[in-house]
């Protein structure tokens, strides 16, 4: 079905799928909970009963926030990918490409290796704050360096290449840190770079939730100007779009969502790249559908990946970065080969 009505149906379907994945991901894991267990735990928690069993506390304080964090982080990465591909008018962009995620990873690695020397100690917040700061700083560096002198605007290609270069620089910094680090720190760095949701708790859900809401609400309003940008910067300007302001708004939203999400979960690649493509193949490139749709599908994909990461080797779990690609690539490649998407 085409048009706005079809879009609404499709979003409703994605929303239902998201709920279903979320339910599956709180039900299964290192330990399975039946629906009656889940209901009992939720009832006990909501009614403020003091006597929650250990299992019930695991469910309420670990399993549920983890499922929610998956949805939120997936939404950030999916929507971030759509925004950045739209802004750069380029299908190979992923949200971390302008330095955000490698900078965040470098900030986190610094914390793991030299955290004890940090002058400011924010307790449990030190890791996310240093990762987030790293992401914001590196993105800012990329933008400053990519500013062209004569026209005062960042040409797209220059921005991408600067992003690649700065990414390489931060990756070598991370490599150096993990090389000099002693074992628990070195292992943490590797683990963090593959992404993990095992640190999920209600605090991280609240912070990432706030960042997601603060990013998604204005992003949805940018759909129309981003559509206009499909036909070029000058053409969009002729249609009344303030391209410069659009660029800065999109980039700020993306940095906010990606830096905060990465700060709590580590580097999760690939979701932000393929989610927008999957939806574009299925329903075309209209951003009025794509931004919300990719937030939902990003959440679905990350929840599924996390579920698989938790149940494959249980009670141990895989880093999620390994699973996202294994789940996403076959779907992506089969859609890519079955449609004339790139013509």
């Amino acid at each position: 079905m085409k048009g706005p009505r079809g879009d609404r149906w499709c979003l409703a379907l994605l929303f239902a799928l998201m709920i279903a994945t979320a339910v599956a991901s709180i039900r299964f894991g290192a330990m399975d909970f039946s629906f009656s267990d889940m209901a009992a735990a939720a009832w006990g928690w909501l009614s403020g009963a003091a006597g929650l069993s250990l299992d019930q506390r695991i469910f309420i304080n670990l399993r549920v926030p983890r499922a929610l964090l998956c949805l939120l982080v997936g939404a950030c990465l999916g929507a971030g990918g759509t925004l950045m591909q739209g802004l750069f008018r380029n299908p190979i962009v992923e949200p971390g490409l302008v330095g955000t995620s490698s900078g965040a990873a470098f900030g986190a690695s610094l914390f793991y290796v030299f955290g004890a020397l940090f002058k400011v100690n924010l307790g449990a917040w030190t890791l996310p704050v240093s990762a987030c700061a790293g992401g914001v700083i590196s993105t800012y560096v990329v933008f400053t360096l990519a500013q062209t002198r004569n026209e005062g605007r960042s040409s797209i290609l220059r921005l991408l290449l600067t992003g690649l270069a700065i990414n390489a620089l931060f990756m070598s910094g991370i490599g150096f840190l993990s090389y000099v680090a002693r074992d628990p720190a070195a292992r943490s760095i590797i683990y963090w770079n593959l992404g993990t949701l095992s640190g999920a708790d209600w605090n991280s859900v609240l912070v990432v939730g706030a960042a997601t809401a603060a990013g998604l609400a204005p992003a949805i309003a940018l759909a129309k100007p981003l559509n206009a940008l499909m036909i070029g910067e000058e053409e969009a300007a002729a249609l009344g779009v303030n391209v410069r302001r659009l660029k800065w708004t999109v980039l700020s939203i993306n940095v906010l969502m990606v830096a905060v999400a990465t700060a709590f979960t580590g580097v999760i690649s690939f979701v932000g790249l393929i989610v927008p493509h999957i939806l574009r193949i299925l329903r075309g490139p209209d951003n009025r559908f794509l931004i919300t749709g990719s937030a939902l599908l990003g959440g679905i994909l990350l929840s599924l990946a996390d579920l698989i990461a938790r149940v494959t080797l249980r009670p141990a779990e895989l880093p999620i970065g390994i699973v996202t690609a294994v789940v996403g690539v076959p779907v992506f490649l089969s859609l890519l080969s079955s449609r004339d998407y790139l013509s």
Binding site: G86, R89, N90, P91, K224, N227, A228, L229, M230, I231, G232, E235, L239, G240, V241, R280, G284, P285, D286, Y341, S343
Partner: peptide
């Protein structure tokens, strides 16, 4: 030579003229 980044249906493109 306007380059369109993602493949759009013709009507959607013409409708973009009405964006303002």
């Amino acid at each position: 030579a306007v380059e369109v980044a993602f493949s759009l249906p013709v009507r959607e493109l013409v409708l973009m003229g009405r964006y303002p």
